[in-house]
Design a protein around this nucleic acid. Structure first.
Lengths: 154, 154
DNA sequence: CGCTTGACTTAAAGTACTTTAAGTCTCTAA
DNA sequence: TTAGAGACTTAAAGTACTTTAAGTCAAGCG
């Protein structure tokens, strides 16, 4: 890579840019999924370079696809060895894009379901038994499309 | 409840009807989130009644909303109390609703960010350096509002 | 009748984080 | 200049499952 902007980012920035919690960034480092990040000599705080940020974003993309840590490890190893180019990057991003779209869909359904449950309890409090039952029925209808929320990781 | 259909379902059926894996059904039972399920005397296998199935489906719904186990436990306790526990019930659900709304918001941003990244790599492949840089800048702009992706369960 | 197959059982270990507790460093305001 | 706030550090414990290993039971087949 020719990128040499040499940015200096705190872990907070790395978390914001990648979408991964700080705790996860530290965790991935301790298990060796990502290499040790450079430190500020006086404070001991991690200092992320532009290259580090790009790597972390890539890892975040893999993570959001539901890939297991061991698979991510292999993928990153092959990446270094094979020097996979932009094509693989794009494929990775396309996959993730679809996954995010799906997630958004289920999230909407979940929210509608929760709204329904709230309406149900309000009806119960108001003593409107019939209405409550009708709402419960509608809730069950929504729940049908509410399959698995988080895909199991291997 | 007046439901007395007295169906007899194996754990496999319960899993299929609720969408929860068998392992999770067993787990929820061992931690006491759901009461002990009756057993077939000779085989020792769990036998789910219609009421059990209804409960399990409700738990599965709560689970899909991302509610923590402790919150589910409270919710189910209030359930038994009926209208008396409705207030707490609604509070729990309102919290959940806001959590889902936030998640949806960040999901949208993340998708826009991924789209930008895809456009970036296409520009790189096409050798359009200037355009790529412009896109990268826009991506960074989006990333600013891109805080935490999946909120931790308590 | 013995043997395999399949569905189930439990206990324990593994996974992927997340949270908490306790401590360090730097900066600001009194 | 010292006291506190804020951002970070690590190690350890906690969470919510999932997987695995080892075993039980009931049916079907040669």
């Amino acid at each position: 890579m020719v990128t040499k902007k040499d940015g200096r980012y705190a872990i907070k920035e790395a978390a914001r840019l990648s979408g991964l919690p700080e705790s996860t960034l530290r965790y991935y480092e301790t298990i060796g999924l990502i290499d040790a990040i450079g430190r500020d000599p006086s404070s001991g705080h991690r200092v992320y370079s532009d290259d580090d940020i790009n790597l972390v974003i890539s890892v975040a993309c893999l993570n959001t696809t539901g890939m297991s840590i061991e698979d991510m490890r292999k993928y990153l190893e092959n990446w270094d060895k094979g020097a996979a180019g932009a094509g693989e990057q794009i494929g990775l991003l396309e996959t993730q894009k679809h996954r995010l779209a799906d997630e958004e869909h289920y999230l909407k359904l979940r929210r509608r379901y929760v709204d329904m449950k709230i309406a149900y309890w309000h009806a119960v409090v108001a003593g409107k038994k019939k209405e409550a039952e009708a709402i419960a029925k509608r809730a069950r209808e929504i729940a049908k499309g509410l399959k698995l929320p988080k895909e199991g990781r291997k």
